[in-house]
């Protein structure tokens, strides 16, 4: 829109570039209107109504929004989700980066590692959930055996609202394969000559990581951060399958609560209001992240 308004002042070159650019992004623009803008307008309208998805909607004005602020489960689920995002996103980036760096090493059997590390990203979530049992079984689980070495009594992490959230955060790391693969593709894009030159200059492993890998990988890190944020805010499946929001609503994440309202309670109007609030929160967080990160992101290859 900004572009169109000022197009009269554009030079000829800019104008041809504009039309070329718009031509290239036209599939997305079309998809945006059909698959995103239309549903979005639809849900904005319905967020002001009581609507079951079936009979005629009843106009409520701002009632859904005022209800939201006095809804204890809205706040609880928002808190749970933010807690999850705050821990799972940074941990996820570090784990994925470590995996990618390790997979990028010149080790003969690296193909095998890479395949195994990616395996959980292919498997259905209910299979991943099994690692729960192996790791945190109060009697046979590795975690409890480890803790009991230090005299900590065995405990059932899933019976504690905070513990259950932490378990889901740890479990989410099994899905690090996707982000790691993107990092790996980024690492492969860094010219080896840069490292060779640095090595000749006597730079150590850490120095090379800080002055070559990290800056050149920064666009990819930003990408993984933003997608992890968007995924983290919409965390749903793990809790849906494993804990169904419990114990004591400790893993009732925002999307789970939204989903219940939309499809189990048939309160589509309220669910739309919940969606839009999550959308706004997501945009705000992404905006902060983007503007902070943009300063550190380096798009040009430097030699």
């Amino acid at each position: 829109m900004v572009a169109v308004k000022s197009s009269s002042k554009l030079s000829r070159r800019e104008r041809t570039n504009l039309s070329r650019g718009l031509l290239f992004i036209s599939p997305w623009l079309l998809g945006l209107i059909i698959f995103t803008i239309y549903p979005l307008i639809y849900s904005i309208i319905f967020s002001f109504t009581r609507y079951s998805g079936f009979r005629r909607p009843v106009w409520l004005g701002m009632q859904n929004y005022t209800r939201l602020f006095s809804d204890s489960l809205f706040w609880l689920s928002l808190g749970n989700t933010l807690y999850y995002v705050l821990w799972a996103v940074p941990i996820g980036i570090v784990v994925a980066l470590l995996l990618a760096l390790a997979m990028n090493r010149d080790v003969r059997e690296v193909n095998v590692y890479r395949a195994i590390l990616y395996l959980p990203s292919i498997l259905p979530t209910f299979a991943l959930a099994f690692i729960f049992i192996v790791l945190i079984n109060p009697q046979y689980g590795i975690v409890n055996i480890f803790f009991s070495l230090f005299g900590v009594p065995t405990q059932n992490f899933l019976s504690d609202p905070l513990g259950a959230k932490n378990v889901i955060i740890v479990l989410a790391q099994l899905g690090a394969g996707n982000a790691a693969l993107i990092f790996l593709a980024g690492l492969r894009g860094i010219p080896a000559t840069l490292y060779d030159a640095a090595r000749i200059d006597g730079a150590g492993v850490w120095r090379r990581f800080y002055s070559i890998t990290l800056p050149l990988l920064s666009p990819i890190i930003l990408f993984n951060l933003i997608t992890a944020l968007s995924g983290g805010l919409q965390i749903f499946q793990q809790a849906y399958i494993m804990t169904n929001g419990g114990p004591n609503n400790g893993t009732l994440f925002y999307m789970l609560y939204l989903y219940r309202n939309a499809f189990a309670y048939a309160q589509l109007g309220y669910a739309c209001a919940l969606s839009l609030v999550l959308f706004v929160i997501g945009l705000a967080l992404a905006g902060i992240l983007f503007s902070v990160a943009q300063r550190f992101v380096n798009y040009e290859m430097v030699s």
């Binding site: 549903p39 639809y42 933003i226 939204l258 989903y259 999550l278 992404a286 983007f290």
Partner: peptide
């Protein structure tokens, strides 16, 4: 483009 990543999926199911 980035903003659309933050639209929760359930709202699209019914209109689509």
């Amino acid at each position: 483009v980035l903003a659309t990543m933050f639209i929760p999926f359930p709202i699209a199911i019914v209109p689509q």
